[in-house]
C-alpha cells in the first residue's frame, strides 16, 4: 500500500525485526503482558489440579492427561498475550504511527507475530517445569523432543493469534472474540500438538508423530503467507 514515489523503507526482514524489537523492549520494561500471562497460566494449572487430582493423573499416566492440560494452558495464556499486543497500540493510538512507518504491512505482521511468539515461548519455559512439578512427570528425560514439539506448534498459534488479535482490536473487542476466532481455526494445530506431546511423554520415538509435525509445519507455512498477504486489509482504515 506504499504510495508510488515514496522513499523505500528498510527491507522486509529489518522492518519485521524492528517491530518485534520494539514490542519486546516495551514488554521487557513493564513485563505487563508476561506477568498477566504467567499468573493466568498458574491459575489454569491449579484449576486443572482441582479438576483431576494427582491420583487420577498417576492412574491415567502423564501422557494421557498432561498434553491436554499443557495446550489448554498455552493457548489460553497465549490469547491473553496476543490481545494485549494490539491493545497497547490502541491505547495511545500508536498503531497510526506504526502504519506511517515506511515498511511493508506484511513486515508489521511478521514483527508482531515474532514478538508474540517470543513472549509465548518465554511463558512456556516457565509453565513446562511448573507442570512437571504439579503433574509429577519427568521433564528432563524428554526435554529435547518436548522443546521441538512445543516450539513448532507455538508458531502456528502465534501466527493465527496475531492475525485474529488484529481483527479483534480493529472492531474494539478483546479476548472473548479472539478466543472465538482462534480455537476453531487453530483446531488442527491443537490436535497435532496434543498428539505430538503425548508421543513425547510416552517416551516413544518422535518419528511416530512425524505426520502430525508435518501437518503443523504445513499449517504454519500456509497461514504465515495468508497472514502476510491479508494483514494490510486488516490494518487499513
Amino acid at each position: 500500500m506504499r504510495a508510488p514515489g515514496a522513499p523505500a523503507g528498510p527491507g522486509f526482514l529489518r522492518g519485521a525485526l524492528a517491530v518485534a524489537a520494539k514490542d519486546l523492549r516495551l514488554e521487557w520494561r513493564t513485563l505487563e503482558a508476561l506477568s498477566a500471562m504467567a499468573l493466568f497460566s498458574l491459575i489454569v494449572l491449579v484449576v486443572f489440579n482441582f479438576a483431576f487430582d494427582l491420583s487420577t493423573v498417576r492412574r491415567l499416566g502423564a501422557a494421557r492427561l498432561v498434553p491436554g492440560v499443557l495446550w489448554i494452558t498455552f493457548s489460553f495464556s497465549g490469547i491473553v498475550g496476543f490481545a494485549r499486543s494490539f491493545q497497547i497500540e490502541r491505547r495511545r493510538d500508536s498503531l497510526t504511527a506504526l502504519l506511517l512507518a515506511p515498511v511493508d504491512r506484511g513486515a508489521l505482521f511478521a514483527g508482531k507475530a515474532l514478538a508474540n511468539l517470543a513472549a509465548l515461548l518465554a511463558l512456556e519455559a516457565l509453565v513446562l517445569p511448573l507442570s512437571a512439578v504439579f503433574f509429577d512427570y519427568d521433564l528432563l528425560a524428554v526435554l529435547g523432543p518436548m522443546l521441538l514439539v512445543v516450539g513448532l506448534h507455538t508458531i502456528g498459534l502465534a501466527e493465527l493469534g496475531t492475525l485474529f488479535a488484529a481483527v479483534a482490536a480493529r472492531v474494539g473487542r478483546g479476548e472473548a472474540l479472539l478466543a472465538t476466532l482462534l480455537f476453531p481455526a487453530a483446531s488442527p494445530v491443537l490436535i497435532a500438538a496434543v498428539r505430538c506431546t503425548s508421543a513425547v511423554l510416552d517416551g516413544s520415538d518422535l518419528a511416530s508423530a512425524s505426520r502430525w509435525m508435518l501437518v503443523t509445519a504445513g499449517f504454519d507455512g500456509l497461514f504465515f503467507f495468508v497472514a502476510l498477504l491479508t494483514f494490510e486489509h486488516v490494518l487499513e482504515d
Binding site: 476466532l181 501437518v215 504445513g218 499449517f219 491479508t230 486489509h233
Partner: peptide
C-alpha cells in the same frame, strides 16, 4: 474487509481440520 480475510482463512482451514 475483515470478513473477507476471515473468510479466506476459514475456507483454507476447513480441509486441514
Amino acid at each position: 474487509r475483515l470478513a473477507a480475510v476471515l473468510g479466506i482463512v476459514a475456507a483454507l482451514d476447513v480441509p486441514i481440520v
